[in-house]
């Protein structure tokens, strides 16, 4: 018997100077409790977890900080600039996140998930401000993983601006609509990986369920970043496992190389030796 592990070998995903074995990156927001979050992070198998930077709540001294629930020796933290609506604010937030992670000696101190939003209703990225912020952060020594829409031209601009990974949204953040425009995503992949096949492209946002993750991976994306899909599920623990498995399944399917889509059927059983007397007319 062939050992499944021997046929499913895969190279790690490389994001800047980080090498990860899991291609799933998970967020830490919206969990009903920090304990539940902690369990789901572990069940997802992720190596990287993303967190936001926010004001200390000076009035509430419950003393519980999310960092007490994340194993800093196991996970690389990816600070994000979620909630920023200008390049200036995104740069400030990125620097603050770096400062905290430097103090914690977490390897995540040298990178950031850049997110510059255009409006609160759609939470769609502001492409002009995102490119601007990306340039500034790269100049400041950051490895930038850049959230963007699925627009191929913007994606190309961000790569030119120095992003170590471009992360197109499948659909709006937290919408659970999955991958709305797989053709755009395919063009993004084609443009970004042209002459640079290892350039990492990660679907970030919109993932609702396991098949969305599998589809992203089957299209040739290098990874998926998601949060609400797990945190908002009825049973987040089970969904964390489902997302992990979908990511692995989709990746394996991509590496295996799917069959082309055809309009008409192709019999799986031999056409020779059929004992039926009646021959179907019009068969090819």
């Amino acid at each position: 018997m062939t050992d499944p592990a021997s046929v499913t070998t895969d190279s790690p995903i490389r994001l800047g100077n980080h090498e990860l074995s899991s291609r799933l990156i998970v967020g830490t927001g919206k969990y009903r409790s920090l304990e539940l979050m902690q369990e789901c992070l572990a069940l997802s198998g992720a190596d990287v977890v993303t967190v936001a930077v926010r004001r200390e709540r000076l009035t509430d001294s419950s003393g519980r900080n999310i960092l007490d629930f994340i194993d800093l020796s196991r996970f690389t933290i990816l600070p994000n600039t979620a909630g920023c609506f200008s390049a200036e604010d995104a740069v400030r937030v990125a620097r603050l996140g770096r400062e905290i992670l430097r103090g914690l000696e977490n390897p995540g101190a040298d990178w950031v998930k850049l997110e510059v939003l255009g409006d609160t209703r759609t939470l769609l990225p502001d492409p002009v401000a995102t490119v601007d912020a990306c340039r500034r952060l790269v100049d400041d020594g950051f490895q930038v993983l850049c959230y963007t829409s699925d627009d191929p031209i913007t994606a190309r601009r961000l790569k030119e601006a120095g992003a170590v990974s471009v992360m197109p949204a499948g659909s709006p953040i937290g919408s659970g609509q999955g991958i709305l425009n797989r053709n755009n995503l395919r063009i993004c992949l084609e443009y970004l990986k042209e002459d640079d096949p290892d350039y990492p492209v990660i679907v970030d946002a919109g993932v609702g369920t396991a098949s969305d993750v599998a589809l992203a991976m089957e299209l040739g994306c290098d990874g998926v970043l998601l949060n609400t899909g797990i945190a908002g599920a009825d049973d987040p623990r089970r969904m964390a496992v489902a997302m992990k498995q979908a990511c692995q399944a989709g990746r394996q399917a991509w590496l295996a190389g799917r069959i082309p889509r055809k309009l008409y059927a192709t019999a799986s059983s031999p056409e020779e030796g059929v004992i039926c007397l009646k021959q179907q007319a019009g068969a090819g």
């Binding site: 998970v26 967020g27 830490t28 927001g29 919206k30 969990y31 920090l34 979050m37 993303t50 967190v51 936001a52 930077v53 926010r54 004001r55 200390e56 000076l58 900080n65 999310i66 960092l67 933290i77 600070p79 994000n80 979620a82 400030r92 937030v93 620097r95 603050l96 996140g97 400062e99 905290i100 430097r102 103090g103 953040i173 937290g174 946002a205 970043l225 998601l226 949060n227 609400t228 945190a231």
Partner: peptide
């Protein structure tokens, strides 16, 4: 940004705007 190393030496001046942040759950 005020680097950690300077927290002990930098003194507040009237009108300073200070932001103190931490990490929270997010995606």
């Amino acid at each position: 940004l005020l680097p950690r190393e300077e927290h002990r030496t930098v003194r507040l001046v009237s009108g300073d705007e200070i932001e103190i942040v931490t990490l929270v759950g997010g995606g």
